[in-house]
Design a protein around this nucleic acid. Sequence first.
DNA 1: CTAGTAACTGTAATTATATACAGTTACTAG
DNA 2: CTAGTAACTGTATATAATTACAGTTACTAG
Lengths: 200, 200
Amino acid sequence: MQELTLRQQEILLWIRQYMADHGIPPTRLALCAAMGFRSPNAAESHLRALERKGAIELVQGVSRGIRLVEEPKETSGLPLIGKVAAGQPILALAHIESYEPIAPELFRPVAHYLLRVQGESMRNAGILEGDLVAVHHTLIAQNGQIVVARLEDEVTIKRFYRRGERVELHPDNPDYPVIEVNLKKRALHIEGVMVGLIRA
Amino acid sequence: MQELTLRQQEILLWIRQYMADHGIPPTRLALCAAMGFRSPNAAESHLRALERKGAIELVQGVSRGIRLVEEPKETSGLPLIGKVAAGQPILALAHIESYEPIAPELFRPVAHYLLRVQGESMRNAGILEGDLVAVHHTLIAQNGQIVVARLEDEVTIKRFYRRGERVELHPDNPDYPVIEVNLKKRALHIEGVMVGLIRA
DNA sequence: CTAGTAACTGTAATTATATACAGTTACTAG
DNA sequence: CTAGTAACTGTATATAATTACAGTTACTAG
C-alpha cells in the first residue's frame, strides 16, 4: 500500500468507523455529508485515489461497493515457541511452533509469546515439564521475578536475583543447582518475564 | 430469536455466506438471483419475516441495509466460576464471575468452565492457590484423574480413586489429609475432570 | 514557468435498489 | 370449512447511489 495523504488517511479512518458502526460500507453521499463535501465527485475521486494506492477496492456498478484491503493481520493469538536454535533471537519466525488461541490481554502485563517448559527446575513454583509459560518480552527484570534468560545460547526459566555485576539464577527445586553469572565474563540476556502459565 | 422455517434458515445462511464473500450485505435482487425468485417481493417478504423473528435487522430506505443480529455467542470464551453457593449446581449463572478469552478447544477434551483454586492441597501437581483450573464437565472419572468433586455442598479439587463403594480423594500435598468417602453414607458428585490450568 | 496532482464545486444522467400493491398456491390449526 | 401463514409471481415506481463531464484553486517538483 502506497503512502496516503493526511486527508486520505482521515477518510480511510472514517470509512472504517462507518463500517464498524453500520455494518455496511458508506455511500458517496454519506462520505460527502461526513466530510462536508458539496459535490459527490469529491467523494468519488477520494475513493479512486484510495483504490489507486491500494487502501481499498471498489466494485463498480455496485452500491456501497467498497472493500477494505486487509493489512497483513497479526494472527490473533500467541505464538508458541518450541526449541530455540543457538544464536538466533527467541522470537524468530523459525521458532514458532504454532499459534494458540489465547488473548495476550489475559495476562498483566500482556503476554508476547508462550514458551514450552523443559525440565523440572521450577517445580516448586508450580511450573511443570510441558507447561506453557506466558512471557512478557522485556529486557529488565526485578529481583525475585521469574525470567526467561539466555545464557550463552541456552534458554532457561529461572528466578532472577542481581547484585551489581553478579546475577544468580535460582531454580525453585532443591535438586537443581543455582546458576551464578558474572556479567563481565559471560553473556546473559533477559528475554522476558513470566506473566502466566498454561497447562493444556 | 424465534424459530425459523427451513427456507428461512437457508436464506439466512446464504446471507451470511454472501457477506463473508463480498464484505457487504446483498440486495433484494441478488437474493432473488441466488434463490431463483422471479419477484423481488419474494426476497422482500423473506427479509421481513427474518426481521420479525429477530434474525436480522432492516434499515429502511438504505441500500443493502441488512444487519445480522449476533447470537449471544458462547463460543468466545470460558466462564470463570467463583465461589460456589451451597446446594446450587456449579454451572449456575450466579456463579459466573466473568468470561475469559480462552478457546475451549485449547484443551483435550474441551474445557467447559474454569474454576479458581483455593488452598494448596494440590501443590505437588503444580496447582497453586489462585490458579484457574480448566474443567471438562463429566460425571465419570478414571482412577488417578484430578477431578472437581462436590462433597456435601463443598466443592474441591482432588485426585480420584475408587474401589467399589469406597472413594478416596487424594491431595497432592502431604500436609493435607486424604478424604475417604463411603458412597452409601455420604453424597459425592463428580462435577468434572481437570483438563488444563491457567495462571494469569 | 509549467506540468502534474490533491482537493475540491456543480450539474446531470443512468442504473441500482427498495418497496408498495395486487395476486396465487399450498399447508395447517381450530 | 375457514382464517392465518409461508412462499411465492408480476408490475410499477420512487428514491438511493454511482459515475461521467466540465470546471476551480492551491501546492509542488523539475
